[in-house]
Amino acid sequence: MAMDEMPDVPDVTKKFLYVNRKAPYGTIYALESLEVVLIGAAFEQDVSLAFLDDGVYQLVDGQDTTGIGMKNFSPTYRALGDYEVTKLYVEKESLEERGLTPDDLMQITYEDEDDDWAEKPSIRIVSRAEMIDIMADQDVILSF
């Protein structure tokens, strides 16, 4: 599909969850997931992203890849709001197991069209129990 063409939008909106469980850079999973999310956003579905296990490292602030010769794609997560991807669920237990806190994550916001374009945080910290319910509430789960 060319970027300059609008895809045919399906009649029924489905709930899509992208599950991210791997740290960035060691494998291609994180970048592939992000690219699929950006392309898939054109289909105007109800998209959420889940970050658990090592996947929480994708959102850690202060990534600097100059020494490994790879592109730092972490700033792109901050563009997700422009693509109307505004629900980034991060599992609390996964952060804790890795010695991380919500303060270690990037600031990612979106502008709420229904609330006079107020800037709101996209990252939502959820417990494992809440994550289980979020997963069970989806039509489609895409794993990376």
């Binding site: 794609f73 700033p75 792109t76 901050r78 563009a79």
Partner: peptide, 10 residues
Amino acid sequence: EYQIAPAIRV
């Protein structure tokens, strides 16, 4: 700022 070229609608 974002390390990507925006999609046309964006």
